[in-house]
Amino acid sequence: MSGRGAPDPAGGARPGMRLDKWLWHARFFKTRTLAGTAAGGGRVRVNRVPVAKPGQTVRVGDVLTFPQGHHVRVIEIRALSDRRGPASEAQALYRDLDPPQPRADADGKASTPAPAAKREPGAGRPTKRERRQLDRLKPNPDDPTL
Results as ranks from 00 to 15, higher is better:
residue 3 G to Y: 13
residue 4 R to F: 13
residue 4 R to P: 10
residue 5 G to C: 08
residue 7 P to N: 14
residue 8 D to A: 07
residue 8 D to H: 12
residue 9 P to S: 10
residue 11 G to L: 04
residue 11 G to D: 07
residue 13 A to F: 14
residue 14 R to K: 11
residue 15 P to S: 13
residue 16 G to K: 03
residue 16 G to S: 12
residue 17 M to C: 05
residue 17 M to V: 02
residue 19 L to P: 01
residue 21 K to N: 01
residue 21 K to I: 02
residue 21 K to R: 13
residue 25 H to F: 14
residue 25 H to S: 08
residue 25 H to I: 01
residue 29 F to R: 03
residue 31 T to L: 14
residue 31 T to K: 14
residue 32 R to Y: 08
residue 33 T to Y: 14
residue 34 L to N: 07
residue 35 A to P: 04
residue 36 G to V: 01
residue 36 G to Y: 03
residue 37 T to W: 13
residue 37 T to Q: 15
residue 38 A to G: 11
residue 42 G to L: 11
residue 43 R to N: 09
residue 44 V to N: 09
residue 45 R to A: 02
residue 45 R to W: 06
residue 45 R to I: 06
residue 45 R to F: 07
residue 47 N to A: 03
residue 47 N to K: 06
residue 50 P to Y: 05
residue 50 P to D: 02
residue 50 P to K: 04
residue 54 P to D: 10
residue 55 G to E: 13
residue 55 G to Q: 11
residue 57 T to D: 15
residue 57 T to E: 15
residue 58 V to E: 06
residue 60 V to A: 09
residue 60 V to H: 12
residue 60 V to F: 10
residue 61 G to Q: 04
residue 64 L to E: 09
residue 64 L to D: 02
residue 66 F to R: 03
residue 66 F to V: 03
residue 66 F to Q: 02
residue 67 P to N: 01
residue 67 P to L: 02
residue 68 Q to K: 14
residue 68 Q to L: 15
residue 70 H to V: 09
residue 71 H to C: 05
residue 72 V to Y: 13
residue 74 V to L: 14
residue 74 V to F: 09
residue 75 I to P: 05
residue 75 I to S: 00
residue 78 R to W: 10
residue 78 R to Q: 12
residue 78 R to D: 12
residue 80 L to H: 01
residue 80 L to P: 00
residue 84 R to C: 07
residue 84 R to L: 06
residue 85 G to V: 05
residue 86 P to H: 13
residue 87 A to N: 08
residue 90 A to R: 09
residue 90 A to F: 09
residue 91 Q to A: 14
residue 91 Q to L: 15
residue 92 A to N: 12
residue 92 A to S: 14
residue 93 L to M: 12
residue 94 Y to N: 03
residue 94 Y to T: 02
residue 94 Y to A: 03
residue 96 D to W: 06
residue 96 D to V: 07
residue 96 D to R: 08
residue 97 L to D: 09
residue 100 P to Q: 03
residue 101 Q to W: 01
residue 102 P to Y: 07
residue 102 P to I: 04
residue 103 R to F: 03
residue 103 R to P: 02
residue 103 R to C: 00
residue 105 D to F: 09
residue 107 D to G: 03
residue 109 K to A: 04
residue 111 S to Y: 01
residue 113 P to N: 00
residue 116 A to Y: 08
residue 116 A to M: 05
residue 117 A to I: 00
residue 117 A to V: 10
residue 117 A to C: 02
residue 118 K to T: 04
residue 118 K to Q: 15
residue 120 E to W: 05
residue 121 P to A: 07
residue 121 P to G: 06
residue 121 P to K: 12
residue 121 P to L: 02
residue 121 P to C: 07
residue 123 A to D: 15
residue 123 A to F: 14
residue 124 G to R: 11
residue 125 R to A: 01
residue 126 P to S: 07
residue 129 R to P: 06
residue 129 R to V: 03
residue 130 E to M: 02
residue 130 E to V: 00
residue 131 R to K: 03
residue 132 R to C: 11
residue 132 R to D: 10
residue 133 Q to W: 04
residue 134 L to S: 12
residue 135 D to P: 01
residue 135 D to E: 15
residue 136 R to K: 10
residue 137 L to Y: 09
residue 137 L to M: 13
residue 139 P to Y: 09
residue 139 P to G: 08
residue 140 N to A: 12
residue 144 P to C: 05
residue 145 T to E: 15
residue 146 L to G: 00
